[in-house]
């Protein structure tokens, strides 16, 4: 048993403050275990959202020592104990209470993206024939657990609050999963360029750094979308080729 100090932010969207808690922890415990211990022994009114404790539900997102992380996947022995471990709610969304934030903006924004629009099925029963190598690329995007750590660390949302103009990395990954899908026929490039603000991303790769599913968000989702937008709107050579009928 070791003794550690946690500095947990408590309050709601209007005000709040850090509270220090000292607690005993065992080997192998994660940050969420320590928070639960504090909740059980010292602060029964501490609000914390969690569900699977296995890094798959994306509920326990928080900022641990300033970095966006899943509390259930952050082992205490990986953190320095010479000072209190700071735990805060994620910053890009309104705080409900203590460590719980209102992430519903993401789900509302998701509805503004054109849904999957499949081509005509290959078989009478509605089945599609697809090669594994064609589908592999979008399978990476579908690993997303919607923890919104990428949205939180993205400075366009976190610091510049461009929620009305930019959909953020998570929803760009969602768009890429649809746009790069071999059976999809919808064109989302104009909305990605204009309403969803793909150009706001300045490729700092912070979203990739914090992704607990290790999705290469910038390289495999955002940049391929940016390149497709260049194809369609910023490449004069391709515009000429399209006018001449050489390209579609």
């Amino acid at each position: 048993m070791n003794s550690i100090q946690l500095r947990i932010w408590r309050g709601d969207d209007s005000s709040g403050q850090y509270h220090d808690y000292k607690t005993e922890v065992d080997d192998g415990m994660v940050v969420l275990d320590a928070v639960h211990k504090v909740q059980a022994e010292q602060a029964p009114d501490l609000a914390v959202r969690w569900n699977c404790k296995a890094g798959k539900c994306g509920s326990c997102s928080a900022e641990v020592n300033g970095m966006p992380r899943l509390m259930c996947m952050t082992r205490l022995n990986t953190l320095p104990t010479d000072a209190p471990i700071t735990i805060e709610p994620i910053r890009a969304f309104p705080r409900v209470r203590d460590l719980v934030t209102d992430v519903s903006w993401n789900f509302r924004k998701k509805l503004t993206i054109k849904p999957f629009t499949p081509r005509k099925p290959d078989f009478p029963d509605g089945e599609f024939k697809m090669q594994q190598e064609d589908i592999e690329r979008v399978q990476e995007h579908r690993k997303c657990i919607e923890c919104f750590l990428c949205q939180n660390v993205c400075h366009v949302l976190r610091d510049h609050h461009k929620h009305d103009e930019f959909i953020g990395p998570r929803l760009l990954v969602y768009s890429a999963a649809l746009e790069l899908h071999p059976a999809d026929t919808a064109d989302r490039l104009k909305s990605l360029k204009d309403e969803h603000g793909a150009g706001y991303c300045n490729i700092t790769k912070c979203c990739t750094v914090v992704c607990p599913e290790h999705i290469k968000i910038t390289d495999n989702a955002i940049i391929p979308l940016k390149e497709r937008i260049v194809d369609e709107y910023y490449d004069p050579l391709k515009v000429v080729l399209r006018v001449l009928g050489v390209r579609r």
Binding site: E63, G66, M67, P68, H155, R158, D159, N202, C206, V210
Partner: peptide
């Protein structure tokens, strides 16, 4: 823009 991930600008 930003100085580093999760650091003030």
């Amino acid at each position: 823009d930003p100085p580093s991930c999760a650091v003030g600008e």
